[in-house]
Simulated scan of single mutants.
Amino acid sequence: MLQVVLGLEAAQIASAFLMSPAAMSQRLVRAKTKIRQAGIPFHIPEREQMPERLEAVLDAIYAAFSEGWQDPAGTDPARRELAEEAIYLCRIVTDLLPSEPEAFGLLALMLYAEARRAARRNPAGEFVPLRDQNTALWDTRMIDHAEAALLHASRSGRIGRYQLEAAIQSAHVERHRTGVTNWPAILTLYNALFAITGSPVAALNRALALAEVAIGPETGPQAALHTLDDLAADPRLLDYQPYWAARADLLARTGHPSEATQAFERAIALEHDPAVRSFLDRRRAAVSLVATTD
């Protein structure tokens, strides 16, 4: 779907699924060969066939949105249109399957994210992390639409991955109204998300939420760093930039500036966005200065 219908390249698809481009290329070749040899035709499924195909369709839509999300300022027409197209496609799915909560959960998730697009860069074009974003720049109308979609999904009583991810974004949006991020709620939601998915990305984000909540004898950052130590053996995170950026931040916060500097250097090497690279480099320089003075 991602390659044939939406035109993504193997490397772009691989990034969305935490795979190497070579492995994804082989997977795509095998899929095309299977379709060709089995003579499987392209056709519009009957309504009763749609629910069994829903998970794969939603995953493809979200992967397409994620690719478009990598253009924060919306200056790349192809990527901007890809994000818009993903939201449009998800709306079609909700129209076709109004009783499927995960379709509404994904719609809410993408709307929450898209609502923050204007705040992801400052006037100088510099990267602004979520915790530092000016919430006045968030699109309130789009957030309202996201909240309505998530509420609709929650009424089904069938919880799924996309509803939980959207609920996490809803908890972040609380800062737009109160000025305070509800970290305990976010941690609870990440616990639930990891329980149903086992995803290393969910585990990583759970650690970041844990860093903001003091539990037991350890401080939040200490507990979070120990969690990341447990994730270090997962090969899917070896070349995952957010893992190294998170590790660098936690090492800096727990008084390990030299190790933090090395982790920042790894994160910078893995990042392709110039604005994010510049942000990480500024953080690295600040931590490196502490290591030098120590």
Rank of each mutant, 00 (worst) to 15 (best):
A11M: 06
R79I: 04
T188A: 15
M1A: 13
V213W: 09
L58H: 08
T293P: 00
K32H: 09
T219M: 08
P123K: 07
S20Y: 01
D76K: 05
A203I: 09
L130K: 05
A38Y: 01
L189A: 07
Q26G: 15
H226N: 13
A223N: 10
A166N: 03
H256P: 01
A267Q: 05
R121I: 05
E218N: 10
Y240H: 12
W138P: 00
L109T: 08
P217R: 11
F194E: 15
D59G: 06
D249K: 12
A291Q: 11
V93F: 12
A233R: 09
I196N: 09
E165I: 05
A192G: 04
A223F: 03
R253E: 14
D139G: 01
A31W: 13
G216C: 08
L237R: 05
L111G: 01
N205A: 00
R266T: 14
A103E: 09
A60D: 15
A203D: 06
I168L: 02
L82E: 07
K32V: 00
E9T: 08
A119P: 00
S288G: 15
T140A: 15
R141H: 11
T188G: 10
P123C: 04
E114Y: 00
Y112S: 05
T94S: 07
N191H: 14
G125P: 03
R253V: 03
L225G: 01
T188W: 13
A146C: 09
Q3D: 13
L270K: 05
L280I: 03
L82C: 04
A209P: 07
E81K: 10
G220Q: 03
F127I: 00
E218R: 12
P51I: 02
V93C: 11
G255K: 06
A209E: 03
A203G: 13
A103Q: 10
L164N: 11
L58V: 08
N134L: 04
Q3F: 02
R247G: 07
I92T: 12
E218S: 12
S278A: 14
I44V: 15
E165L: 14
Q222L: 05
I35H: 02
D249R: 14
D95E: 14
P257E: 04
R277D: 09
I44Y: 10
L228I: 08
A23C: 03
D230S: 11
H272T: 12
R141F: 06
P51T: 04
N134W: 07
R206V: 04
E212L: 07
G39I: 00
L89T: 10
R284S: 04
G105P: 00
P51C: 02
D281H: 15
V213K: 08
G74A: 08
A149Y: 07
I92M: 14
S288I: 05
R79M: 12
V276Y: 05
D229C: 02
Q70I: 01
A38D: 13
T181L: 05
D249W: 05
A86S: 14
T197F: 06
L225M: 03
R177Q: 06
E102K: 11
R36Y: 15
D249M: 09
A195N: 05
Q12D: 13
T181D: 01
I168K: 02
A115G: 01
A118Q: 09
Y162A: 00
A31C: 03
L18S: 04
D281A: 13
A113H: 14
A10H: 08
L130R: 09
E52M: 06
Q26N: 14
F104Y: 11
A63N: 10
L250Y: 00
